[in-house]
Design a protein around this nucleic acid. Structure first.
Length: 408
DNA sequence: AGTCCACAGGAAGGGCAGGCGA
DNA sequence: TCGCCTGCCCTTCCTGTGGACT
């Protein structure tokens, strides 16, 4: 029996290695790959370059705020320009890149400075030091460099929402205390209203320059995909319709190039797994479906147990409402959900949280796009949130299966 | 116009785990 | 070892809110 299994797996592996496959090199289909030239972003690249160019003559560049929705090339263009700048200046410039949305990495002031120090090869403990000690170490490290330091704060809105703008004020003030070095800040955000929430003193010092990235249209996305596909796929392995479909689907989602690349790569993986020689439109459909399911199930899986309990209560309530009201009305309110959640906790021996805390968990699930919670007023019957599940039936089944194992 | 409901959500602070330095 | 600092998760207390009802 064992030898039979071994023989079959050996067969699969040898088939896999013998088959040339669809991909030439998958890294070219990754959104983090920075190509030699970036299509349809010439103007934006020029704008970033113009802001940073004074560095080459020894002047301090202005701080800059870059806006644009997801996948419009803000990060890649910034990194592209910084790479070029580093090359021309013969690495006399220090760049620090931090993604402020990364949970447990840079989602608090302490973690941001800890992460920036890490980029400067100074390691500090995850917790335990007073913040001003981190500030001092950061100043010292910057001063030690005796160069221009460009700090790129990607998804800066996430951090601003969480900890306020005090850290930005402190960062912009550093220059007055430095004598041998200089700091410039590039803030990248997809929240267009982000700037409006800044304190006026921060606003004036940070938003000296502003650059806006418009979404790509389907034709532009097609160009981008086509150039990446030439590098990423072997010849004649990609049907023309598949490429157009990826571009069209991503264009529908506010011109998101990252999404287009993901679709193309996953479609290729699906085709390869099915033993096909070319990627077809059907594979793109399957990829879209897979990406949606994977994104949501992964988000649910990584939630703490209490959040999962809240979500499971919502699913149970949704199922009950649908069966009782015969699909007519599956809306649920915060109060109903909380009662259901408390019952679930009791059944599972879980300490129930207060309604205040559950209200925050509902907001977090809403932010993740797993549920939708809309505030409504029921007049004399108070104000509450109307909650609906934001999942297709297939995804819901997968998520439910995952949660049933934990709570039933 | 005033009242009332059922929350939303801000602010403050408690408790815990963990690191640092005297 | 102890005091002080941090982040994180949570509770308690409080004010604000929109629209139906009186």
């Amino acid at each position: 029996m064992i030898s039979a299994i071994t023989a079959s797996t050996t067969n699969i592996f040898s088939q896999y290695t013998q088959n040339e496959g669809i991909f030439r090199d998958k890294k070219f289909l990754s959104s983090s790959f920075i190509p030699q030239s970036i299509l349809h972003r010439e103007q934006e690249i020029q704008q970033i370059t113009a802001v940073l160019a004074p560095i080459l003559k020894g002047y301090s560049p202005n701080n800059v705020f870059i806006y644009g929705t997801c996948g419009t090339g803000k990060t890649i263009c910034t990194r592209f320009v910084l790479n070029q700048l580093a090359e021309i200046s013969k690495n006399k410039i220090t760049t620090i890149y931090v993604n402020c949305k990364m949970k447990k990495v840079a989602d608090t002031e302490y973690r941001l400075f800890s992460q920036m120090l890490k980029e400067l090869n100074e390691f500090v403990p995850d917790t335990g030091l007073p913040t001003d000690v981190l500030y001092r170490r950061f100043f010292a490290k910057i001063e030690e460099r005796k160069t221009h330091v460009i700090i790129v704060l990607d998804e800066i809105d996430a951090l601003l929402k969480k900890v306020g703008d005090e850290f930005l004020y402190n960062l912009t003030r550093i220059n007055s205390e430095l004598s041998k070095s200089h700091i410039s800040i590039i803030g990248i955000t997809n929240d267009l209203s982000c700037r409006d929430h800044l304190d006026s003193r921060v606003k004036s010092s940070l938003s000296e320059e502003e650059i806006m990235f418009k979404p790509y249209n389907a034709l532009q996305l097609r160009d981008i995909l086509s150039s990446r596909a030439k590098m990423g796929f072997r010849e004649n392995t990609l049907a023309d319709g598949a490429l157009s479909k990826c571009a069209a689907l991503a264009a529908q989602e506010h011109g998101d190039a990252r999404r287009a690349l993901d679709l193309l790569r996953v479609a290729g993986e699906i085709a390869e797994r099915l033993g096909e020689n070319t990627v077809q439109e059907t594979h793109v459909d399957m990829a879209e479906h897979k990406i949606n399911i994977d994104r949501l199930t992964e988000a649910v899986r990584s939630q703490p147990k209490q959040s999962q309990a809240v979500l499971y209560s919502a699913i149970v309530l949704d199922r009950r409402n649908k069966s009782q009201k015969k699909w007519a009305d599956s809306r649920m309110l915060t109060g109903d959900l909380y009662d259901n959640y408390k019952a679930l906790c009791e059944k599972n021996g879980l300490q129930a949280l207060t309604q205040r805390r559950v209200s925050d968990l509902i907001s977090e699930l809403d932010m993740l796009g797993i549920i939708s919670a809309k505030i409504i007023s029921k007049g004399r019957h108070g104000r509450t949130r109307e909650i609906t599940l934001e999942m297709t039936e297939n995804t819901l089944e997968k998520v439910e299966k995952l949660l049933v194992e934990r709570f039933e």
